[in-house]
């Protein structure tokens, strides 16, 4: 919320209507818990009553043997579908980003 309000203030906005967050599949963020908290933390701020939009970012890992990215799934065992190699090299999926704000 600090980040959202700071952006709103620097742009001279009076009201925040929509907040878009990018959430990686393995970011450790529970969308339901986030939505629940969102209502509480936005109360009495510029963003009161705004819409929270969550964009899911799928997890992608890199196989060092095939030198290629693959879908890592959700279970934290990153096993290359081509060669079976286990990888720990996550290239995408841990994002927790403020992607967009709609304000006026």
């Amino acid at each position: 919320m600090d980040a959202v309000l700071q952006q709103a203030r620097t742009r001279g906005a009076n009201r925040v209507h929509r907040i878009v967050l990018r959430i990686g599949a393995l970011a450790g963020v529970e969308p339901e818990a986030l939505r629940f908290a969102f209502e509480v933390v936005t109360r009495d701020t510029l963003a009161a009553g705004s819409t929270l939009q969550l964009e899911a970012v799928p997890a992608r890992a890199f196989c060092p043997v095939c030198a290629a990215e693959f879908d890592a799934g959700m279970d934290y065992v990153f096993s290359c579908p081509t060669c079976g190699q286990l990888s720990c090299d996550l290239r995408q999926g841990r994002e927790l980003e403020l992607a967009q704000i709609e304000m006026s």
Binding site: L21, E95, E102
Partner: peptide, 24 residues
């Protein structure tokens, strides 16, 4: 708390800003 704005006015001045701010 800002006073509620009338729909038409809001639409006119609303802007959407693209950001890529990591939150941690």
């Amino acid at each position: 708390q800002p006073a509620p704005l009338v729909g038409a006015n809001v639409a006119a001045v609303r802007e959407t800003v693209d950001l890529r701010v990591p939150l941690l």
